[in-house]
Amino acid sequence: MVKQKQWFLAVAVILCMGGAAYAADIGNLSGQSCGDATGTWHFVNNQTGGAAAGTLDAMWSSGNVCSVSASSVNKNNQHFYCIASGALLGASTDLPGRLVLSDFSCGTTPPPPPPPCDPKKDPDCK
Rank of each mutant, 00 (worst) to 15 (best):
D122Y: 05
G27F: 04
K3S: 10
L89Q: 15
T55A: 11
P115R: 09
A24G: 09
V13S: 11
A70S: 15
N28T: 11
A52W: 02
L56Y: 03
C16Q: 10
P96I: 12
D124K: 14
V13T: 12
F104E: 03
F104D: 00
S105L: 08
K75F: 12
L15N: 15
L89P: 02
C125V: 05
P119N: 06
S92T: 11
L56H: 08
D124R: 12
G50M: 09
A52R: 12
L9A: 14
S71A: 15
P111T: 09
W60S: 01
S71Y: 05
D124S: 15
V11P: 00
H79P: 00
S102V: 01
P115Q: 10
W7L: 14
A84Y: 00
G86H: 01
H42P: 02
N64I: 00
A84L: 00
F43Y: 15
D124F: 13
Y81W: 11
G107N: 12
A21Y: 07
P112M: 08
P96M: 10
N64Q: 09
Q32F: 09
G49Q: 10
A24R: 02
Q4E: 14
T40S: 13
A84G: 02
A23E: 06
K121M: 08
S85P: 01
C82T: 05
V65L: 12
